[in-house]
Design a protein around this nucleic acid. Sequence first.
DNA 1: GGGAAAAAGTGGTTTCTAGTGGTTATTTGT
DNA 2: ACAAATAACCACTAGAAACCACTTTTTCCC
Lengths: 150, 150
Amino acid sequence: MSNFLGSHAINMDAKGRLAIPAKVREELAHACGGRIVLTANADEERCLLVYPEPQWEALRPQIEALPNMNKAARRLQRLLLGHATPLELDSAGRILVPPTLRSYARLEKKLMLIGQGKKLELWSEERWFAWLDESSDEEEMPPEMEALSL
Amino acid sequence: MSNFLGSHAINMDAKGRLAIPAKVREELAHACGGRIVLTANADEERCLLVYPEPQWEALRPQIEALPNMNKAARRLQRLLLGHATPLELDSAGRILVPPTLRSYARLEKKLMLIGQGKKLELWSEERWFAWLDESSDEEEMPPEMEALSL
DNA sequence: GGGAAAAAGTGGTTTCTAGTGGTTATTTGT
DNA sequence: ACAAATAACCACTAGAAACCACTTTTTCCC
């Protein structure tokens, strides 16, 4: 099972190529042989999600099966399914981010790649730091979280 | 079971390397053979957390399992999982703090390492002393705390 | 209490590989 | 068929990691 951790600053070149950090590349190699699926994030943060292909294939039927008379469910489907793009690493360990996804997440040169266990998140650096600075406003936390002892 | 106590002033060099104090090194050696995980703190104090690897591995699944349609849970995941970095001590007993974590906790040259029982906290010296000076404002305390007799 | 030896902390140097950019080939569309 | 855009290939540079050497502090023994 893949286990992506940590954050990495990476640059995207003018062609939309970005080099996956070597550490992450290793993880990807034996999680999916370098076959990944890139898609949009569903919540209000405009970032991209990087799934090893098997992980994505496990998730996809669940999304497709959602009762889509519900507006929120339709939104999730359109965002996730509608942006999903299979990608492979090139010989130098880079991926080419499709223009659509690039503009969805407002990616420019400086990016951040954030490990999230079974997947990775790809943010524009600017947006990532802005999100970090947001006050962790008084959202109510789920009971599992209140019980945590870090 | 590890049991980190006390505080130590330490210096980070220009490359981001910092020497773990010998006392702490001993504790680490037989808690995890020197294999540690460094990550960000979840609350508003921007410091880093140092876990012996087994401790972290006990915690990680709990964090990953949080219901991440919830905003507060997502924040915790992005901070903790998204910054977690496994590290090993070099031949001189030092660790290299990744640039991402260095900037998150605003670490410069002078740092403080604070024992917290099962983990350690790593602060910029400046922020540590500033925090000490903060008024412990009238937050209400949990019942377990009210029952304490120091 | 002083000196010596060992350990701890600090800094620099070299080597290697990850990351970057450019160039050529191929494919697709007009 | 030709042109433009995309994809694969190759070469170079810069940054990171491992190695090594030195200085300073502490502890133990005389």
